[in-house]
Design a protein around this nucleic acid. Sequence first.
DNA 1: GGGAGTTTGTAACATAGGTTACAAAGCGGC
DNA 2: GCCGCTTTGTAACCTATGTTACAAACTCCC
Lengths: 220, 220
Amino acid sequence: MYELLKQTPIFKGLEAAEIERLLSGISFQARKVDADVSIAFRGEKIDQLFIILSGSLRGEMIDSQGKVLKIEDNFQGKALAVAFMFSKKNEFPVTVTANEKSEVLVIHKSQLLFLMQRNERILTNMLELISNQAQFLTERIWALTFKTIKSKIANFIIQKSKNHELAVIELNQTQQQLADYFGITRPSLARTLSEMEAEGSIQYERGVIRILNFEKLKTE
Amino acid sequence: MYELLKQTPIFKGLEAAEIERLLSGISFQARKVDADVSIAFRGEKIDQLFIILSGSLRGEMIDSQGKVLKIEDNFQGKALAVAFMFSKKNEFPVTVTANEKSEVLVIHKSQLLFLMQRNERILTNMLELISNQAQFLTERIWALTFKTIKSKIANFIIQKSKNHELAVIELNQTQQQLADYFGITRPSLARTLSEMEAEGSIQYERGVIRILNFEKLKTE
DNA sequence: GGGAGTTTGTAACATAGGTTACAAAGCGGC
DNA sequence: GCCGCTTTGTAACCTATGTTACAAACTCCC
C-alpha cells in the first residue's frame, strides 16, 4: 500500500518507509465500496479524507428533480474532497458514488491536520492539491458556459485531444454518462454528434471520436 | 493600511504591528486602478497576489464570441487569484476588471511564499482561503446547472434572502450585469421577472425584488 | 447461437429562451 | 426643466434543445 501511496498527490515526494512511519502515528481505515454505492452525499459534513486505492468513483450533483450533472471521475490515487475540508462551510459539494467495486483509504480530518503539521511536504502537497481542484472547477465552469451543445462537444474534443496531439478520442463512457457531464439529454447528444459527423468535422462511432477537421472544431 | 489588512482573510488573526513587521521584510506595492481597467487577463500566468484595499473588481470569463459570464464581484479585503497561484497550471482563470476606481495591494508569489514559511497563521489562512474559493466555485457550478431561467432566479433569490431572513433583496446592479451573472440575455431576464411577478411569487421593480411567496420560489 | 438487458440512432413534436427592435422610463448634467 | 445617455419593458419571431417513443445494434451470459 505504501508504494501505491507514494504515487498519490498527497504523499508524493515521500519515501514509502516515511509514509509508513507517518501513517503508523495516526488512525485510518481502508474501506471497500461496491459499484453504485455512494460513500458521501452532497450537503454532508466533511470530516474525512478519502484516497482511492483501487477502482473509480464519480462526483456528481443531483438536483431536486433528479437531474444529474457529473463533475468528475476519480481514479486510483486521487484524493476526494480535499478542497472542502478546510473551508468554512465544510460540506460535500457533490455526491460521491463508486463506478465499480473500489477501495478507499479513509483518514479523519484531525489526523490529516496532524500529518500536515508534522510534515511540510504533505502540507505543500495539500496546498497544490487544493489549488489544482480550484483550477479544475474553474475550467468546469468554463466548459459549462459554452452555450450550444456543439460548442460544448467541440471544446471537450479539443481538450481531450490535447490540442490536436491526438486525432482519436476514446470516450470510455456511455452516451448517457457523457450527456450528464455536459448537462444535456442523451438524444440531444446523439443528434449533435450526428450533425457534426454530417458536417465533416468528426467521425463518430460507439465510444470513439475521430477528428477530421480540427480547424472547424475550433470555430464552433 | 495595516489596520485594514488585519481585517482581510489572509492576515486575520494577526496584530497590525505584526503585519507591519512581516510586510517590512518583503517587497510589495500599492496600485491604483481606474474604472473598467483590467489588471489581469484570463490565461495570463499568475505570479502576483492582489488584495483589494478599496473599491471593487469583478472576475469574469469572456468567450471568443464576446459573451460574458461574471463569476464574482470582489470587494475590499478580498484577495484575488489565491486559489490559482499554487496550482500546476498557474494561470488566471478569469479576467479581472475594476468596477470603479480602486486600489490594490500587489505581492509577488515568491514574497507570499516567504511569508507563509515564516508565519503559520498566514499559512493556515491561505489554506482556508483556497478551500473557500473551491467551495464557492462549486456553488457557482451548482447555480449554473439550474436549467430554466426561473429556477436560476429563484435559487439566486433564496440564497440572497439567506433562506428567508430577508424579504427584500437589493440588486445593486443593472439587469445586464445580473443577466451576465446568470449567463443569459437581458430581455430573457426581464421577461422571466415579469412572469414571476405575474405568478405572484415576487414583486419586482428597478433594483429591488420583494419576496411574496417563498414556498412557491422553492418549488421552481 | 438465442435471449435478456443495455446502449444507441433517429424522428415528431413542444417549448424555453435567444434575437432584434423599439419605445418608455429613469438619471445625470447644465 | 430640458437634453442626451443608459436602463428597462415588451413584443414578434426563430431556433436549439428537451421530450417521448421505438426499433436497431450491441453485449453478455447460458
